[in-house]
């Protein structure tokens, strides 16, 4: 073993600054993915053929191709096709968000289908319109059941966000590479990056447990 962190120590704050970049991408992508995922899920179960077809095709494409490919296509493809330059940050948020939506939509669809159909009938019998029924009665119950699966998705997203390195966003991973290049030692900064990701995921796990506890207060 010849690990030597002494040369890396001065650069640790530099790597840590990447957390802000990573988190910003993850938070915005997760929000985009969740909102769009809910919309896709509603399209899938709504019974309008065109919408169902669109949502299924969407899921199929975004699940069926590598995330890093989607990211690169958005980052390099949009400028080439439209002439608009796109920064690494929005490109990352769009790519991760759109990709995540495909997975989230399936999770939410399963959650909605698992809610007892009597809930829907009780709401209908009270004259509750579809939109309110979904928002106030079906989705809250679905979310409670699928929270662990959604947390999984968020954790995956956090870790997978490291692929933004390929489009040059200054996240934790990229900074670890840069520091490695500066001192010709890659293992040490990468181990530090690994620790940072692990701690982030642990924090998310705790957050998820706390949230689940709150949602389960009606049990």
């Amino acid at each position: 073993m010849n690990l030597d962190f002494s040369q890396i120590v001065p650069s640790i704050p530099y790597i840590l600054q990447g957390i802000a970049v990573t988190l910003k991408i993850v938070v915005f992508a997760a929000l985009l993915g969740f909102v769009f995922g809910v919309i896709l899920a509603l399209m899938k179960i709504g019974g309008m053929k065109v919408l169902t077809w669109f949502a299924d095709a969407y899921t199929s494409v975004f699940r069926g191709t590598p995330l890093v490919l989607q990211l690169v296509l958005i980052y390099f493809g949009i400028p080439q096709l439209t002439g608009f330059e796109i920064d690494a940050f929005p490109a990352a948020v769009i790519a991760f968000g759109l990709n995540s939506a495909a997975y989230v939509s399936e999770i939410i669809r399963a959650g909605i289908l698992a809610v007892d159909k009597g809930q829907r009938e009780a709401a209908l019998a009270l004259g509750v319109p579809y939109k309110l029924m979904m928002r106030d009665i079906i989705l809250p119950q679905a979310l409670k059941n699928i929270l662990p699966a959604l947390m999984n998705e968020l954790i995956t997203l956090t870790k997978e966000s490291a692929v933004v390195t390929v489009i040059g966003a200054m996240d934790v991973m990229r900074r670890a590479y840069i520091v490695g290049g500066q001192v010709y030692r890659y293992i040490e900064p990468l181990l530090i990056a690994g620790c940072i990701y692990y701690v982030l995921v642990m924090l998310l796990t705790l957050l998820g447990k706390a949230l689940e506890g709150r949602l389960r207060k009606s049990d």
Partner: peptide, 8 residues
């Protein structure tokens, strides 16, 4: 089967 809303 009642169908009360369990989260309320």
């Amino acid at each position: 089967h009642f169908h009360l809303f369990p989260h309320m």
